[in-house]
Design a protein around this nucleic acid. Structure first.
Lengths: 231, 231
DNA sequence: TCGCAAGCGAGAGCACCGCTCTCACTTCCG
DNA sequence: CGGAAGTGAGAGCGGTGCTCTCGCTTGCGA
């Protein structure tokens, strides 16, 4: 994007961005299921068939939005992590969790897109993997930091889980004890359980004052991974 | 259903059931987004408009399927709970969790319907509430049982969460200590985080041997609620 | 510098969708 | 037994994703 090879290439980039912007707007207001190529084209003063010059199908447009959503979430989480730079690992963990929750609450449809039920026939291409990993990497980094500072309590894993725990550790963080990586993956999934229930309305009429509830749950999640306050 | 008031009423019940069956079949094979009234009607040898005599809209048909899904899940969980009748509470907890997971893995689209992203414009009517509560009630019952047997470890709740914890306890289980009900609600959400990640493919290429992983995570969830092995 | 291939937008059209309305026909109840 | 209510068929409305063709424009290579 720094080398505009020509007017046509620049126009193409601009129109592609405009399509994504309008699509994101419709996604935010109506949800993924009602995202319509024709409506996007209409809003842009184009005819629907012209859109296919930029995205070969509706699913490809959705994929682009998915990648963007992962990146947006990852960015929010990383910003929170950076802001919490000087803080002790358990509190940094909570800060990242709260950032995830905050982003999800302010982008519910995008959250649904990436962590809700997968879209009908379609499965996310490999393109999404690096963007999707950003939050996970952050959580790993926090635990690694604590571990190097000896601030991790280790809970043993049953024998039947031992091989799998070694596999997970090898994939995720070979420098961490396997049982810690198992707890980490579980906590990661559980975090999205908490966030998802709130975003999707499962807490309606059950939990009212959700922020302290979430903060407490996130803190206990941190304990589950072994992050302990040094004090 | 025990008093067939007439041929017409019986026919109506039968056709309604046939529609739901066919819809469920399409739901299982294609997912909620591709559930088409016209396709259901076609499979049944009817014309699409005739279907509206039985379900006023596609969303109403979906609602019926949602209630059925909640009931099916609740039934599976209750059956597992009954089978685990004589077992100590922490293990009964794990048994129910495993039943939820098992049901979700064998009914992924129905799971997505009830615990995935909510369908576009539509919000679940009150009709679904009792069916939706069945699993939760089971988990509450297990904890209550353990509590009456003094088998619950209580983790205090921060001051900022205390009012909310009392509110939750009043709603959910006034006979249990508020901090236990808070942990219970969190664990409930976290359970669906674990299950959802597995069903929706977030564990692909990350966790391979998922059954022991889940069993371990569920057991630690039980610990988080305060269920401890007496031994 | 010019010609031609590639890029692009418009439009028509296909098969599908949810949903509505009307019109016959049947069933059932007062 | 007659009228009201229930039922299914059919046509039709406006919408969808997607394809194909047709001209116009752009810009690269000879």
């Amino acid at each position: 994007m720094s080398t505009p090879q020509g007017a046509r290439a620049r126009a193409r980039a601009e129109i592609t961005a405009a399509i994504k912007d309008e699509a994101r707007r419709q996604l935010a207001s109506e949800g993924a299921a009602k995202l319509s190529l024709r409506a996007v084209a209409r809003a842009l003063g184009m005819v629907s068939s012209a859109l296919y010059r930029y995205f070969p199908s509706r699913d490809d447009l959705l994929t682009a939005l998915i990648v963007d959503a992962y990146d947006s979430l990852g960015e929010a989480a990383e910003a929170a992590h950076a802001r919490a730079g000087g803080i002790v690992p358990p509190d940094r963990w909570v800060a990242v969790c709260e950032a995830v929750r905050g982003w999800a609450l302010s982008h519910p449809h995008e959250y649904a897109l990436i962590y809700g039920s997968p879209v009908p026939g379609y499965s996310a291409p490999q393109t999404t993997v690096p963007a999707a990993a950003r939050v996970g990497n952050l959580l790993i980094a926090i635990v690694r930091d604590a571990y190097q500072g000896r601030g991790v309590a280790r809970t043993p894993v049953p024998a039947e889980l031992e091989p799998e725990s070694r596999r997970i550790a090898a994939d995720l963080a070979p420098d961490l004890p396997p049982e810690v990586t198992v707890a980490l993956v579980a906590a990661w999934a559980q975090l999205y359980g908490l966030v998802g229930f709130e975003v999707f309305g499962q807490f309606n009429r059950l939990v009212e004052d959700r922020e302290p509830f979430f903060r407490h749950a996130a803190a206990r999640l941190a304990e589950g991974v072994g992050l302990v306050h040094a004090s």
